[in-house]
Design a protein around this nucleic acid. Structure first.
Lengths: 103, 103
DNA sequence: CAGCATCCAAAAGGATACTG
DNA sequence: CAGTATCCTTTTGGATGCTG
């Protein structure tokens, strides 16, 4: 879950079950390899449940487990906080890159 | 702050100002290169303040800025939550690795 | 549709030696 | 003490092609 995509998978699943390509589209910019790799780790760690419906074509949906939901909550608030403060960060970065003209 | 060490630097500074080697010892296992690299990024993004006291030998202390403190809080709660649930994760992982003997 | 295998590039991280 | 520079390994991530 240390990975950059793991947290996005987790938060994307907060709203409800998603299938593989739905998840891929929702996240945007993630390759199938990364998605399946992260998914496997999350399933392994018991944060995500993988459900295969016997059908042709295959239909697999992913949901958060109770544990996954519990951890997804603080992850989400962290992401929200970062998103809210991104302008400040960008400002600080610009100031710094311009030669720190603070004094 | 995406890095594995960035969050540890941030949470380590919550208790108060620390000097370079204090920070290094507090975190444990981080190389000087990684520490200074992460520190530079955090300073650049306005999360950490770097203060040089003119002295010989050099004395540099790092503190959280208000912005850094604000972001360190949700980071800390996430880490706490993960720490609290690590046993569950380890259990899930073991079960999974043993062949998922759930059914 | 779901997802694995392969090959490749980039970034993160580590050990060590050196500077002011 | 507080870093920087260099070299190397590991991890992450991406593009593409293939299978059931």
């Amino acid at each position: 879950m240390t990975s950059r995509w793991g947290v996005l998978v987790l938060t994307s699943l907060r709203a409800g079950p998603l299938r593989f390509h739905e998840l891929r589209d929702r996240i945007g910019g993630i390759s199938e390899k990364m998605l399946s790799q992260n998914l496997r780790l999350l399933v392994r760690d018991g944060l995500v449940h993988r459900e295969v419906e016997p059908a042709v074509p295959p239909r697999v949906s992913y949901t958060l487990t109770p544990l996954g939901a519990e951890l997804a909550h603080p992850v989400q608030s962290l992401l929200d906080r970062i998103a809210a403060r991104t302008p400040d960060i960008v400002t600080a970065r610009r100031r710094h890159d311009a030669g720190t003209p603070t004094g």
